[in-house]
Structures are given as C-alpha cells and as structure tokens.
C-alpha cells in the first residue's frame, strides 16, 4: 500500500474521529450502561472507517484507520481498556477483508462490511473472554441469552429465537451503517470537492 502525504493525513483524521467517538461516546455509554451500546459504537466507528475508505480507496486503508483508533483508545478515561481495543481492531480487520474483495468500494461491499463488522460485537465475547480471562464459553453464552431475553422481553427458554433476533438486530444496524456511510461519503466528497482518485 503506497500512500501519499495527503492520504496519510486523511487516514489520520478518520482514525482520530473513530478514536474520539470511542473515547467520549464510548466512556459515556458504558458508564450509563445503555443496552446495545457496543453495537452503536461499533456502527459509528465503522461508518467513519467506511467513509474513510471512500476517500482513500486503497487496500489496507480501513485497517490503517482502525489501528490509529485503537492506539488512540489508550487515551480513554479509566486507563487501559483491552476489550474495546480488541473490538476496534477486529472490526477494522473484518471490514478490511470484505472491502478488499472488490477493488473499488461498492455499495454492496460497504453494506456487507458494515453488517459483518457490527456482528463481530456479538461474537467477540466468545473469543476474548475464554482467551484472556479464562471464562467458559458456556458462561458467555448464558450471559448473551440472559441479556437478550431481558432486552427483548422473551423467556429464557426461547434460546434460538433470542439468538436469531439478536443476530438480525446486529446485521440490520450494520446494514444501516453501510448504507449511511455510502451516502454520507459521497455527499462529503461533493461538499469538499475531493474525488476518490485524488
């Protein structure tokens, strides 16, 4: 990936915007303990990264933005937060892999990148909790179902229904993030008078 000075600065700007959303909004949402706050944060972050990809349509640019945001998350209130950091970098990797499938960003790949990136929020505890804290997968699964049943107002027995609805919610929010970033990215390009090839 060969980047010009301008490209590097633009990637830094988008990385900073993602970092700011994680530092300020992330801390506030986590403190208020709002349900699905991780999904909301991930959707906002991915939207910023996807808009960044529209501006710099080169392989690796989304990952670059993600790395900057991850490193900036270290400035977050409350010290080191390993979970969100792993979350940011994983979402960036997922989005990067999907976007790298096609050369130039397309609306379809943007939507796919957004939805899979947001879906990662649901999958992440199954990876990080057993690996980092030795928490059993079963416990993570149980917590997911309990949270889902509380959120949806369904009984604990309807495991597959809860899981299905949770996956659909995550995917839908990701799809919205993809569509919004596609539209917003092109509006922004017109507004600042900057094309993707620049």
């Amino acid at each position: 990936m060969k980047l010009s000075t301008k490209n590097l600065v633009i990637l830094a700007v988008f990385g900073t915007l993602w970092g700011i959303s994680e530092i300020t909004l992330g801390t506030a949402l986590k403190t208020l303990n709002i349900p699905l706050s991780g999904v909301l944060l991930s959707a906002i972050g991915l939207m910023i990264a996807l808009i960044g990809r529209i501006f710099i349509p080169k392989k690796g640019s989304t990952l670059f933005i993600g790395i900057i945001a991850t490193l900036l998350k270290l400035f977050s209130l409350g010290g080191v937060v390993i979970g969100p950091m792993i979350g940011i970098i994983s979402e960036a990797i997922v989005a990067e892999v999907v976007l790298s499938l096609t050369g130039k960003p397309r609306q379809g790949t943007m939507i796919l990148a957004g939805s899979l990136g947001v879906l990662w929020v649901l999958v992440q505890p199954f990876v990080t909790n057993p690996l980092l804290f030795g928490r059993a997968v079963f416990v993570v699964w149980e917590k997911l179902i309990l949270n889902g049943s509380q959120l949806l107002g369904l009984g604990n027995k309807a495991v597959f229904l809860i899981l299905g609805i949770m996956i659909c919610i995550h995917l839908a929010i990701g799809v919205i993030a993809g569509i919004v970033s596609w539209n917003l990215g092109h509006t922004l390009q017109k507004r600042v008078g900057m094309s993707s090839e620049e």
Partner: peptide, 10 residues
C-alpha cells in the same frame, strides 16, 4: 507520521 498527526489533532 499518521499517529503524530492523530495525537495532535485529537
């Protein structure tokens, strides 16, 4: 370079 810009921009 990008990190330097990002930290200053924050």
């Amino acid at each position: 370079f990008s990190m330097g810009v990002a930290v200053n921009l924050l």
